[in-house]
Design a protein around this nucleic acid. Structure first.
Length: 482
RNA sequence: CGGGAUGUGGCCCAGUUUGGCAGGGCGCCGCGUUCGGGACGCGGAGGUCGCGAGUUCAAAUCUCGCCAUCCCGACCA
C-alpha cells in the first residue's frame, strides 16, 4: 500500500458511498462539525471563509441593482406570522415557538422565523405611503430555523445561514422583472464564481414556495446525479400585501397594494460546491471562491532551512502585493508530503512548492489541485502564470461540471423510462408534462423524481406526458432531489 | 417520520457473547534526529465507557428509558 492510498482511507471513495464521502469531506476539510443540538452544525473557519466569499460576491451584485441591507427580528409574533394562509400552512410543521421567558408564559407565542415575509411585510406597511416610496428593495443576511425531520450538513440543517431579499413594487410587471433579475444574478454568480452550471426555470405549483404566485429556481446536478435546488426567486403577487396591509397612494391618487418579490440562497451552496467539484482526495475549490488561491509549501533540511523560509516569506509577500490570496504553510511539525495531502483535502486550487533546488534555478514548482499536473515556473513569470492558471482551473471546473451534466441528462417518454434511468444512473430526465398535478404526483410516487423546473431554455418539442401519455404542455426536467 | 446500524481519551477501534485492574493504533506534549507525496527514536499527559434509572458484593459488559450521529426510504433553502 502506498502512502497516498493510506491517506485517502480517511475519505470514503465516492463510488463506494456518496453520502459518506460527502460527510467525510465536510468533517475532514473542517468546513463544519456537528453541534450538540439536534440537526445543527457549527460552520468552522475554513467553511465560514467560503460562506464569506459567497456573501461578498452576491452582496456586491445585489447592491449594484439598488438593494440595501437591513436586519429584522428573529422572532415573529404568532398573530403576524399566521396572517397569510398558504404561508403558515406550508411552514407550520417546521416552526419552533418561543412560549416562555424564564418561568413566565408569554402572552403571545413567538415564532422563530423560517423566512421573514410576514415580519418584513409588516414593517413595509409602515414605511410605504406613496408610489414615491417604491420600489422598496431590502435584503438581510441572517439565519433561519426549520425543524426538519432529516438533516444533513449544509444541505438541510435545523438552523441555516442564508440571505433573503424582499422587494415591493408599484406594478406587477416591475415585480416580475425583479424576480427574474435576481434569478439571473444567482445564475451568473453560480456559473461564473462557483463554477456550477445551473438550470434556470419555473417551478410547478406543487413545488413552489408557500405563499408565492410563482417560484423560479436554479437547479444544479451533483456528482451522484441528484438535483440540488441552489436558489429560488419568488413573485409573491399582492397576497402578502393584502393581509399585511401594504398599500400606497398611486399616481392616479388611488390606494393600491404593492407587488412583492422575495429571493434567497443559503449555505447549502457550500454543499453544492463540495458535491459538484470534489473528488476522492477531498474538496476542490474554484479559484474565485477559494479563501486561499494558492498555498506555499517550503521544503528544506536543517542546512537550507533559513534560506528556503526566507525566500518563501518573500514570495508570499510579493504575491500578496499582486492581489493573490496566498498562504504560507511554515509549520515545523509536518513534512512536506503531509502538507501536500492536507491542502489537497482542503481544496486549495494551486500548490507552490519551494525547495533548495528551486532556489538554485530561480523557479518554483506549481501543482494544480484539479488535475494534479505539475509544472516548474521561473520566478520572473510566476505571477503571470498563476493568474493564468487560476483562470484555467476556474474554466476547467465549470466545463467539467457542464460535461458531467450533459452526460447524465436523458430523455424519457414513459414512467418506466424514468424508473429505468433512476435505477441505472440517476441524473436529469427531460420529458413532456401535460401540466396536470395528478400526473406529477404519480410520477413522483412511482419514480421518486420531482419536476425540478420548467426550464427557460428551449428543450425542443414537449413530447408526451410520461404519466398519461397525452401531448405535453411543457418540456420539463425530472430528477431525484436533495 | 419509518427500517437498519453505531455511541469506549481528540480520532479510528478492541473489550460486551460468558459482569471482576479500561486497552491498542493514530493524534497530542517534551527532547533529539528528520523534511521534494502523510518520517523515526526515547520519555510523557490524557477516559464520569453517550445520558438517566435499575439488577448485582461488583456494570463499558445485563434490563428499561432517553439522547445523538450515520446509512436506506417518505417531506423541504
Amino acid at each position: 500500500m502506498t502512502l497516498s492510498d493510506k491517506f485517502v482511507e480517511a475519505i470514503t471513495p465516492r463510488e463506494e458511498n456518496f453520502s459518506r464521502w460527502y460527510t467525510d469531506v465536510v468533517i475532514k476539510a473542517q468546513l463544519a462539525d456537528y453541534a450538540p443540538i439536534r440537526g445543527c452544525i457549527v460552520v468552522r473557519p475554513p467553511g465560514f471563509a467560503i460562506w464569506e466569499a459567497i456573501q461578498s460576491g452576491l452582496d456586491a451584485r445585489f447592491k449594484e441593482t439598488g438593494v440595501q441591507n437591513a436586519y429584522f427580528p428573529l422572532l415573529i409574533p404568532e398573530s403576524i406570522f399566521t396572517r397569510e394562509a398558504e404561508h403558515i400552512e406550508g411552514f407550520a410543521p417546521e416552526v419552533p415557538w418561543v412560549t416562555h421567558a424564564g418561568e413566565e408564559e408569554l402572552q403571545e407565542r413567538l415564532a422563530i422565523r423560517p423566512s421573514s415575509e410576514t415580519i418584513i411585510g409588516t414593517m413595509f406597511s409602515r414605511w410605504i405611503q406613496s408610489y414615491r416610496d417604491l420600489p422598496m428593495l431590502v435584503n438581510q443576511w441572517c439565519s433561519v430555523l426549520r425543524w426538519e425531520k432529516a438533516t444533513h450538513p449544509f444541505l438541510r440543517t435545523t438552523e441555516f445561514l442564508w440571505q433573503e431579499g424582499h422587494t415591493c413594487h408599484e406594478t406587477e410587471a416591475e415585480a416580475r422583472e425583479r424576480t427574474i433579475q435576481m434569478l439571473r444574478i444567482y445564475r451568473e454568480f453560480m456559473e461564473e464564481v462557483l463554477a456550477i452550471p445551473v438550470l434556470a426555470g419555473i417551478k410547478s405549483d406543487r413545488e413552489k414556495f408557500a405563499g408565492a404566485v410563482e417560484t423560479y429556481t436554479v437547479e444544479a446536478m451533483m456528482q451522484d446525479g441528484r438535483a440540488l435546488q441552489a436558489g429560488t426567486s419568488h413573485y409573491l403577487g399582492d397576497g402578502f400585501a393584502r393581509v399585511l396591509d401594504i398599500k400606497f397612494l398611486g399616481r392616479e391618487s388611488e390606494l393600491e397594494y404593492v407587488h412583492q418579490t422575495s429571493w434567497g440562497v443559503s449555505h447549502r451552496l457550500i454543499g453544492a460546491l463540495i458535491m459538484v467539484h470534489g473528488d476522492d482526495r477531498g474538496l476542490v475549490l474554484p479559484p474565485r471562491v477559494a479563501p486561499n488561491q494558492a498555498v506555499i509549501v517550503p521544503i528544506y533540511r536543517d542546512d537550507t532551512r533559513d534560506r528556503v523560509l526566507g525566500a518563501a516569506n518573500d514570495l508570499r509577500e510579493s504575491l500578496r502585493e499582486e492581489g493573490l490570496r496566498i498562504h504560507l504553510d511554515d509549520r515545523e511539525e509536518h513534512t512536506p508530503g503531509w502538507k501536500f495531502n492536507e491542502w489537497e483535502m482542503r481544496g486549495v486550487p494551486i500548490r507552490i512548492e519551494l525547495g533548495p533546488r528551486d532556489l538554485d534555478s530561480d523557479q518554483v514548482m506549481l501543482v494544480r489541485r484539479d488535475t494534479g499536473a505539475k509544472e516548474p515556473v521561473s520566478r520572473s513569470k510566476l505571477s503571470a502564470r498563476l493568474e493564468e492558471l487560476l483562470e484555467e482551473i476556474q474554466a476547467g471546473l465549470f466545463q467539467r461540471a457542464l460535461d458531467y451534466r450533459a452526460d447524465n441528462t436523458y430523455t424519457a417518454e414513459s414512467v418506466e423510462d424514468i424508473r429505468t434511468i433512476m435505477e441505472r444512473n440517476r441524473g436529469f430526465v427531460e420529458a413532456g408534462w401535460c401540466g396536470d398535478d395528478a400526473c406529477e404526483a404519480s410520477i413522483k410516487e412511482e419514480t421518486g423524481t420531482t419536476i425540478r423546473c420548467i426550464p427557460f431554455e428551449d428543450l425542443g418539442e414537449p413530447g408526451v406526458c410520461p404519466a398519461c401519455g397525452k401531448p405535453g404542455k411543457h418540456r420539463v426536467v425530472f430528477a431525484r432531489a436533495y
